[in-house]
Design a binder for these strands. Structure first.
Lengths: 215, 215
DNA sequence: ACATACGTGTGGGAA
DNA sequence: TTCCCACGCGTATGT
């Protein structure tokens, strides 16, 4: 990995357009070709370019060094006034990938295994049911029970209500003779979200804090 | 800014849970206290902690160095096997902030200036009208025209339809006697989004590619 | 502090 | 590849 401290002006053009006036920053140039520029604050790079861009070095009319990273759709340009430091560090390849836990996917798996804990009488769970307007997280069925269309979230906000609405509408079209009920299941359901969902006739289920420890 | 190359194991617990097995990474420790850990690939840090966490250094039972960054809600823990490099770089404070162009805000401003280009007969545009369930980007009025509730996007996906739906519902409650029409105006409207919006009775307007150059 | 929405969001999975 | 959605999203703004 190459780490360059430089006093530079930055412009980006591609998905949007940005400029950053002259100042001191750190440029990280990684082994895979990814380039990111960091200010000395915050954890997100201020500008960046994905791996696979084409690098070129030129001089502008004032004699300043210009570094350019280009793809067919994007261009990142650094006008460099001073290179304050230029450090190359050998790093062993890191093949490990981040393992996540407690994601929405885990919550979904848990619910699929415990349909009756979500609502009495349900025995069968199907995950990721496609509707044509997005996939329903979970559909629950049970003898003599309405079809329960469940949107799972870690934190449910207003958008979740709209999602359930879309899915319920889609399901009513697909199964016009079935009784269909919408439902939001989340670790945390925000007050406004709860209110709007209830008004729309959707069930709201807040999962127990210790859901992970329930077999 | 402090840059540490280290061979470490990482675990995070807070909004979710993650672990990253032993490997060589770069730790960026910025002046504001933000900490981010980078693998030698990609532009996003693999783990990080916002400014303001509490640092502590201890040894574990095997005698390994353990660095911990904690807030009331989150904890990032590094078990360090080797510190391969530890570089401190003085950087002048960078007060510049990234200037963006071509954002949704710019698109909104443009539309507000050209209501008639969005739809014949509209003359008055109001931006950021609050509804209690989020702010409507633009409301257009015109003599003898229904109230046009416009959601502006650079790229419109299904969520945009949900937004418009919420706003239209809210407006119909606030102005029960007005005729109200929902509308999505975007540089790019995805097919499913177009289909769903049309079905819901919302207008879809794709802005011209060269909108910026239209006075 | 909560609620809401944009972003060069980024990343991953499925059609 | 495009399309869609989750994310420890981050970050800004209004209440």
């Amino acid at each position: 990995m190459r780490m360059v401290i430089l006093d530079c002006h930055i412009s980006y053009s591609g998905r949007g357009e940005t400029t950053l006036e002259r100042g001191e920053r750190l440029l990280l140039w990684k082994s895979d070709g990814a380039v990111s520029i960091h200010q000395d604050a915050g954890n997100k790079p201020v500008n960046y370019m994905a791996a696979g861009s084409l690098f070129s070095e030129t001089l502008n009319e004032d004699g300043d060094l210009v570094w350019s990273f280009e793809t067919s759709k994007e261009r990142l340009t650094l006008t460099i006034y001073t290179i304050l430091d230029d450090i190359n560090v050998a790093m062993a390849e890191d093949k490990e990938t981040l393992q996540r836990d407690g994601t929405e996917d885990h919550v979904q798996q848990w619910i699929a295994l415990h349909p009756h804990l979500l609502a009495e009488g349900y025995t069968e769970a199907t995950r990721e049911v496609n509707t044509g307007v997005g996939a329903v997280d979970i559909v629950l069925r049970g003898k003599g029970m309405p079809l329960l269309v469940v949107e799972v979230k870690r934190t449910a906000m207003l958008g979740a209500v709209s999602q359930v609405g879309r899915y319920v509408d889609a399901f009513r079209e697909i199964y016009p003779d079935e009784e269909i009920v919408g439902c939001i299941a989340a670790l945390d359901i925000r007050p406004k979200t709860f209110a709007l969902a209830s008004k729309r006739g959707f069930r709201c289920i807040t999962l127990p804090e210790d859901w992970k420890s329930i077999a």
